[in-house]
Computed example of a mutant assay.
Amino acid sequence: MPITLMKSLRNITTINQIVGVVGRRTFAAGGAKKKGSKGAAAADAPKASLLSKEVKSTTVFGANILKDGQDPKILPDSEYPDWLWHLLDKRSPLSELRRKDIESLPYEDLKRFVKLDNRARIKENNSVKAKN
């Protein structure tokens, strides 16, 4: 009887250990390097690219999202739509839009002014209500 009890206890501890290991949150090994370690300088150094300069200048490397696809080729600027070149243009902040005459604003700036003004009014009303 004591032998069967010992075997059952061994099984219980093994199951508890398995549950503990499975239920534990772990992180990848080697995630944090010590500042003074010898391998840290080599790991932080930029790696030499395996792609030639010709391939880098003609294709968008890493833009392929399809399993069997290829990386897209870089086209000349005339092949892209005009709106693409204006995506990174700086847009006027609300303070500058308030200084301008509303009647003379283009439609896009007027739409932006209304949106930003509404947002500012809502924030102001919320802060007033929060103080009371």
Rank of each mutant, 00 (worst) to 15 (best):
G39A: 07
G39T: 14
G39C: 07
A40D: 01
A40I: 11
A41S: 14
A42R: 04
A43K: 11
A43S: 08
A43L: 13
D44E: 12
P46E: 06
A48E: 15
S49N: 09
S49K: 04
L50S: 11
L50H: 04
L51G: 00
S52K: 13
K53V: 13
K53H: 12
E54R: 05
K56W: 08
K56T: 06
S57L: 09
S57W: 07
T58H: 08
T59N: 06
F61P: 00
G62F: 09
G62A: 11
G62E: 10
G62Q: 12
A63T: 03
A63K: 12
A63L: 14
N64W: 03
N64P: 06
I65L: 06
L66P: 00
L66H: 04
K67C: 08
K67F: 15
K67T: 13
D68W: 10
D68H: 12
G69Y: 04
G69D: 05
Q70E: 10
Q70Y: 06
Q70I: 11
Q70L: 09
Q70M: 06
P72L: 06
K73A: 13
K73F: 07
I74H: 08
I74N: 04
I74E: 05
D77M: 11
S78W: 05
S78G: 05
D82L: 09
D82I: 07
W83G: 02
L84K: 12
W85M: 01
W85A: 12
W85V: 01
L87C: 14
L87A: 11
L88I: 12
D89P: 03
D89E: 10
K90G: 07
K90W: 02
K90T: 15
R91D: 02
R91K: 14
S92T: 07
L94F: 08
L94C: 09
S95H: 09
E96Q: 13
E96A: 06
E96I: 11
L97W: 00
R98S: 02
R98K: 15
R99F: 08
K100P: 05
K100R: 15
K100C: 05
